[in-house]
Amino acid sequence: MSGGVRAVRVFGATVDDQTRCVHYRTEVDVVAMKFACCGRYYPCHLCHAEDADHEAQTWPPEQWSEPAVLCGVCKGEMAIEDYLAATSCPSCGARFNERCAAHRHLYFG
């Protein structure tokens, strides 16, 4: 793909090609998180719990510059710190679900 975007596999119970899953599938549920424990992208913590054979680990703050968030609309990856400061994708403008902040502790330590 052009523009630095590469094909990324998203694991778990996805329901479309924009990373929505059986647990979270509203219009704004368009991000997948790369889990620190396995390096795999999942649409949500529940998908990881159901699919992975290990406990989830969070990203420590000193690694928040790592690209670990995937926009399901444009397939662009962003650093954790950029995602945490955004309400929409910096590449394509797709709006993110602001209620995901309630689950921040499950992904980012």
Rank of each mutant, 00 (worst) to 15 (best):
S2A: 14
G4I: 01
V5C: 03
V8D: 11
R9K: 13
R9C: 08
R9L: 02
V10N: 03
F11C: 08
F11W: 05
G12V: 10
G12P: 03
G12T: 12
A13T: 14
A13C: 09
A13D: 12
T14Q: 14
V15W: 10
D17T: 07
D17H: 12
Q18W: 11
R20C: 04
H23C: 07
T26S: 14
T26I: 09
T26V: 11
V28L: 13
V28K: 08
D29I: 03
V30Q: 03
A32K: 04
K34F: 10
F35N: 00
A36S: 08
C38H: 10
C38G: 05
C38M: 06
C38I: 06
G39H: 08
Y41A: 00
Y42H: 06
P43G: 09
C44L: 09
C47S: 15
C47R: 02
D51G: 04
D51K: 04
D51N: 12
D51W: 04
D51E: 15
A52K: 06
A52D: 10
D53W: 08
D53E: 13
E55C: 00
A56I: 04
T58W: 03
W59Y: 02
P61H: 01
P61I: 05
P61S: 06
Q63S: 13
Q63W: 11
Q63M: 07
S65E: 14
E66Y: 11
E66T: 15
P67E: 15
P67S: 10
L70Y: 04
C71Q: 02
G72C: 12
G72T: 06
G72E: 11
G72V: 06
V73N: 08
C74T: 14
C74S: 13
K75R: 03
K75I: 10
E77W: 00
E77P: 11
M78P: 09
A79M: 06
I80K: 00
D82K: 04
D82I: 10
D82T: 15
Y83M: 01
A85T: 11
A86L: 02
A86M: 10
T87A: 12
S88P: 01
C89I: 08
C89V: 09
C89S: 09
C89T: 01
C89G: 08
P90A: 12
S91K: 09
S91E: 13
C92E: 14
G93D: 09
A94N: 05
N97L: 05
E98D: 15
R99M: 12
R99P: 05
C100K: 03
A101C: 07
H105M: 05
Y107H: 06
Y107L: 04
Y107P: 07
F108H: 02
G109K: 01
